[in-house]
Write a protein that binds this DNA or RNA. Structure first.
Lengths: 111, 111
DNA sequence: AATATATACATAAATTTCTTATGCATATAA
DNA sequence: TTATATGCATAAGAAATTTATGTATATATT
């Protein structure tokens, strides 16, 4: 089954939401979690993920903690306080957008 | 109220869906219809709309009919047969994505 | 009469976000 | 020894959008 294309803007929200539930995660873990939760429907590519994580970090929404497990590098990310607030507003923004889409695509239900 | 940003890929689907319900529409009409249906939440900019319409036309999904009303130009767009089919698959694709997002953002509900 | 707003089209430059293609390195399975 | 999985990263290109302009007519406002 072909996997869904990512819609612009949703990746950041997905990352933040996962981190709000799992305390700390590393990049590769995020790709696997998304794959599992969506039954393979959505594959986060590394080319999209890592730059996003870096941007979230430089924006002060995430903080990093480097660890070495089985002789391999891991970069654990966790939400900062600012990141937690941003998660709330990003989720609201996304839910608002989904409601707006409903109004457009299912106009009969929205009055 | 700040209006929602457009998520990548949804504009084309919105245009196609509106045209599947209204037979023929012109560009400015589409911007007003979207604004009305979403109570101002979503504003389709002309810089996004017109290039999209041109692309849909050159892809054979829309056909154009030029009219002059009140001494002003209007370009009415309507779905071709190919466009009608594409509308169906685009809507399925979007609904699939929304379901995938649900699985990610509301994991408790998806099992 | 002048000015602003609404109607109606269009395009170019810049930005954002993502895909695709690489690259490096270690561990494990075939 | 070769492929797959784990784990990071970045660069080039593509795609879709925003922002900024531009043209033109009609109507409402000052």
């Amino acid at each position: 089954m072909a996997n869904s294309k990512l819609y612009k803007g949703s990746l950041t929200t997905i990352i933040l939401k996962l981190l709000s539930e799992h305390n700390k995660m590393y990049g590769y873990e995020i790709t696997q979690k998304v794959k599992a939760l969506t039954k393979g429907e959505l594959q986060i590519t590394e080319g999209a993920l890592y730059p996003s994580l870096h941007k979230l970090e430089s924006d002060g929404l995430l903080e990093v903690e480097v660890a070495k497990v089985d002789n391999r590098l891991r970069k654990y990310y966790k939400l900062t306080e600012k990141g937690s607030k941003e998660t709330v507003s990003k989720l609201e923004e996304l839910e608002q957008y989904l409601a707006t889409l409903q109004a457009l695509l299912n106009p009969k239900l929205s009055f």
